[in-house]
């Protein structure tokens, strides 16, 4: 057993040094997605993996390592060999878990190499079908006048709907009763059934309900109106410019991955973001691929740094942590 371990350790050292960009990639690449299969981030990841695999000439295999708001997967990638064969797609959680979890086993700012931004999924504010308010200003007035009875649903701490709720309450300076759910599905169920009043969630989950008229929609958090929902005003139009944000997704690798490999991956990402199939399928998710300038290591790093700073005071003020 000792011999085996020795051999293994030796192998580890050789393996780490042997990676060079010239013959990269020589075998399949694993894309870790820190959420269960079937969700929006998983879908984004699989579409990118398909396209990037074609560019790189090696299969990019998706591995779902779910748990603790995505931090289990992040911790896994942080300790992976930095050889470019393990890449990692994570969303806005990379920035918010930095504050939400006070005992992360990795440092979000130093544990990863950056490849680039992939997409930013906008959010929408929706309410149960028989909710009295018709527009965003009416909603705000109603909510402020009925703080004792209005309920806001979210999909658990750290979920996009939780973050949006925090931002919304901060923007209108009112504290609301929050009803947490285990994921978006159950939250949407109770919203459709009128058990809770309103929520704010990714277009991926809400667009079809809005189009079918099964929920009332008030605003999108995108800077401009959405192609899929042209009648829906932006939050800024409705008087809440603070509520402009999206669930951005970035692609990472373990810290110390050689730069030529990172560049190769970043180039493959850029190609994927221009792939007509990717664009078309992203449109079904009511989102668009990031621009070519954003699909770069520098843009992702800048985004992460600024987002950590944006969310830290909000989360600390809300006083809810996930540990």
């Amino acid at each position: 057993m000792k011999k085996l371990l020795g051999a293994a350790l030796g192998a580890l050292l050789i393996g780490a040094g042997a990676a060079s960009a010239q013959d990269y990639p020589t075998r399949q690449i694993t894309m870790v997605i820190p959420f269960a299969a079937g969700g929006p981030t998983d879908t984004v990841g699989r579409l990118l993996a398909e396209s990037m695999g074609r560019t790189l000439g090696q299969q990019v295999l998706v591995e779902n390592v779910a748990g603790a708001g995505g931090t289990v997967g992040a911790a896994r990638v942080a300790t992976s060999p930095p050889d470019g064969y393990t890449i990692f797609l994570y969303h806005i959680g990379m920035a918010t878990t930095a504050t939400l979890y006070r005992n992360l086993p990795y440092d979000p700012l130093t544990a990863f190499s950056y490849i680039g931004l992939a997409t930013e999924v906008p959010m929408t504010i929706i309410a149960r079908p028989d909710f009295p308010a018709e527009t965003l200003p009416e909603l705000i007035d109603y909510v402020k006048a009925n703080t004792a009875t209005v309920t806001y649903a979210n999909a658990g701490i750290g979920a996009a709907s939780h973050l949006c709720g925090m931002l919304f309450m901060d923007a209108i300076d009112t504290q609301l009763t929050t009803v947490p759910y285990q994921g978006t599905g159950p939250a949407m169920t109770d919203l459709l059934g009128g058990q809770v009043d309103f929520m704010c969630d990714q277009t991926t989950n809400t667009t079809s309900q809005i189009q079918a008229g099964t929920v009332k929609a008030y605003a999108t958090t995108s800077p401009e109106r959405l192609e899929a929902l042209p009648d829906l005003p932006t939050a800024a139009e409705g008087g809440l410019p603070e509520l402009t944000f999206g669930v951005w997704h970035g692609l990472y690798a373990a810290a110390g991955t050689p730069e030529p490999i990172i560049n190769e991956l970043s180039d493959a990402l850029k190609v994927a973001l221009q792939d007509p199939t990717v664009i078309e399928r992203f449109a079904a998710l009511a989102t668009t691929p990031s621009s070519q300038e954003d699909a770069t290591p520098a843009a992702l790093e800048a985004k992460l740094v600024s987002e950590i700073e944006l969310w830290r005071p909000l989360i600390v003020a809300a006083g809810q942590f996930a540990d």
């Binding site: 051999a7 293994a8 192998a11 580890l12 050789i14 393996g15 042997a18 075998r27 399949q28 694993t30 295999l61 998706v62 591995e63 060999p81």
Partner: peptide, 16 residues
């Protein structure tokens, strides 16, 4: 089933 676990892991350099 194509599970994503590699046939030989990174402890075994020649095969992985």
């Amino acid at each position: 089933l194509r599970i994503p676990t590699p046939l030989f892991g990174y402890w075994i350099p020649g095969l992985s």
